[in-house]
Design a protein around this nucleic acid. Sequence first.
RNA 1: GGGCAAUUAGCUCAGCUGGCUAGAGCGCCACAUUGACAUUGUGGAGGUCACUGGUUCAAGUCCAGUAUUGCCCACCA
Length: 917
Amino acid sequence: MLDKAYNPQAVEDALYKKWEESGAFRPESCDPKGEPFTIAMPPPNATGQLHLGHAVMLALQDIFTRFARMRGKKALWLPGTDHAAIATENVVIKKLQKEGMKDPRKELGREKLVQTIAEFVEESKATIRGQVRKMGASCDWTRERYTFEPTLNRAVNEVFCKMKNDGLIYRGHRIVNWDPKLQTTVSDDELVYKEEKGAFYTFQYGPFQIGTARPETKFGDKYVVMHPKDKRYSKFKHGDSFDAEWINGPVRATVIKDESIDMEFGTGVMTITPWHDHTDFEIAERHGLEKEQIIDFHGRLLDVAGEFKGMKIDEARPLIVGKLASKGLLVKTDENYVHNKAVSQRGGGSIEPQIKLQWFIDVKKQVVPWKGQKMSLKEIMHDVIHHGDIKIIPDRFNKTYFHWIDNLRDWCISRQIWWGHRVPVWYCGKCVDEKGKSKEVISGEWLVASTATHHSPLTTNHCPDCGSSMDQDSDTLDTWFSSAMWTWSTLLDPQKAADPALSLAEMLKSSPDFQKFHPTSVMETGYDILFFWVARMILMTTYATGQIPFKTVYLHGLIRTRDGRKMSKSDPDTMIDPLDMIAKYGADALRLSMIVGQSPGNDSRLYEEKIAGYRNFINKLWNASRFVLMQCEEKGVDPKKVVSGQWSVDSLSLADRALLHSLQTLIADVTSGLETYDLSATGDRLYSFVWDFFCDWYLELSKGEANPEVLVHALRTILQLLHPYCPFVTEELWSHVGLKGAQSLIAHPWPKEEKKLHDESAFADLHVIIETVTAIRRLRAENDIEAGKKITVFIHSKKQVALLTSQQEHLLRMTNAESLTIDAKSAKHENAASAFLADIEIHLSLAGLFDPVKLKASLLKEQADLSKYVTMLKGKLSNNSFTDKAPQELVDAEKQKLEAAEEKLKKIEERLLGITG
RNA sequence: GGGCAAUUAGCUCAGCUGGCUAGAGCGCCACAUUGACAUUGUGGAGGUCACUGGUUCAAGUCCAGUAUUGCCCACCA
């Protein structure tokens, strides 16, 4: 027999082990004829701990996967981890610094640092694996992948090479976001803007007044820009030059007219610093202007700053302003100027735009074959969503996505960190152009490892042209470059990927998993990485494989604290650790608490009471099962031998028939709910079915007459339907009630709706009984009759005498009544409390306890409510527009409502007349 | 500046394509305790569905506007 309470700790780990060892997570265990269903698990960063964000994605994806598996699909959920380039390198460097190393990069050197990080990552991966298992995730561990493993490196190199050959990857001096703290570039999406209050200065610059919040960048300024239509400056012509006294002496400046200038802002004139500002850079590019670096890569001023050379920006700024002021060039200072400062999302440091020689992906070049045309990466990304090849849930994110695509600039993919896929490019020192130092890099100077047939890893680092040894590009690739290939690179056959003779297309073609499982079915992830990752997977996958990466994108929201704050590591009080919650309440309870009541794309709040509530539900299910087993024992029935459906129809009680009916609608609802990814409502449906119907009514009725076969059948169906949500408790219970010899629940087929078990009238009849019982109980409570005291009840009903009589044993037991009289004719009852349903009147004899005042008051209130209701209905039905235009069924339904309400009202009024005193 | 969302019981949220005397969980009040379950049961109280207009026979549900909150994007020197 089961324990009194469910103890998740006692069963979860063992069950998981059993599943995993049985091979149940592998698609090979599924029906070989089943259609494939694939989810690529978003790889957690291999930096450390599982948090609630992971927990919610694991819960959702596990539900999708288990449902698909039970429905006979060949389900593959492929797990893995991400090397998370910048984040991981950063974590390890900080760790080393904490341990006393001053500058780990210098002290260890590239090779050793990478080695150290790799070791750290291995440990971290092991932690993550354990945590994913704790959640009950039914992913195929035999196919686990890592974004920085050799197979994926091969994919990265191949795609890089292909893009380079297609002219989609180029190397150039462009303005990039430089993070002086982390000493690397970061992409546009890795910036966050922080509002900052600071000074805004206006300086005299020759005949103009110019405004700036960044005087320290102004040393090299030699262009003033204004709008061509600005009448104030119409006497200055484009290309005019003039002399001006400036920070370190006189300069000669040139007038530039450009339409990007906002005439309303400040004086409508500005000087530009193309090296350190995106907009200025674009202006300079448009007009072919000179660019000069002012600030070095450590955030210090260069030679051009003269006496300020070598100073940090923050210390130099006030001194520069002071100097200009002393020259009489400071016109005014606005101290309360608010501007947005770009900050690195990872490192938190200020971003300094710099011009740097970097690698970029061209998103506008129309060279990619797609749907029979040549399109740009941008266009393809737009197309697949626009034409519904990929569906985003919720669809409002389409709009955000399109907006992002529209503003997308070329993607800077090179990083100056050491941890990550190396840019697969070698340089031959000898073959370098004579003008070697020229800033514009040209093709021919470099060689991709494998321009033609020999693919990386390069077997030799000798230059194919001159034979001398070459150096590899020292940069690594943006971590999203490899993450973007996740759906398909993980399906490559590692052996094929290790074969240098194969091209990318050949590798894909000869990898069985790729052929079988790609495109994947669903990509489930947080909406916060729609741009970072989802969009880039679309870019990379359509380009590299000619396929979409996934058919559906399901975006979940963020988990917040009870009061709506973001959970953050810096504020431990706000953090809920999923592992703690699992230890305390079980994985099933945690899963439900993150799924039910949540809708895709919306943030949700989680707090411990919520999890405890679902723990209670799990326990309820446990005890319901316990009851079923007890009933079986009592009747001498072995639950494991019960064959569903093998009961004689005559033996079925009203409750049995109503239950079988409602199980069919439940199966239909849950199936369609899961098919349409409506997890919240479906979870809620199951919750209330189990608790409010199965436990509260069916099991209670079973205490009068139990049918063990039906009990077992119903419980099995419930366990099956709940299994995707709560895999552990359902599997554990299944081991007690599942048919002997049947598969584990995880591998068990999904229940099918059986039309022949539908029985609307039984269901309706049961509701009459339920309402009657509830009404009697209410009378009891309202009249303060102790629960233990036996009562005498009279029921009168025109139409339901047969039904009520047939169920009178239940009525007696469930209301703890001593005597029950049921007849069709209404009768007067003195000293009785009364309640009225549509066609049923109930009188509770209260000899000695009868309180006419109380009864009158309650009947009067009900009378008032009912009259209002009747008036409303009458108004509706006497309105011709309503009866003419509303659908006939609705009008009929309203008529019936009115009839019932009027009848009830009449009864109440009669009873009121009968109350004396 | 542009966009997206939210605003329903004390709290957290459901309420799909308009038909609801507006629901759930938690909390609250009253009662109940020897066998499924106190991680419980029974009954109850709690809401002019942010505001203003409009469409409609009918609006929490659709439209427009307002207010408040949150998020995303862009960015002005």
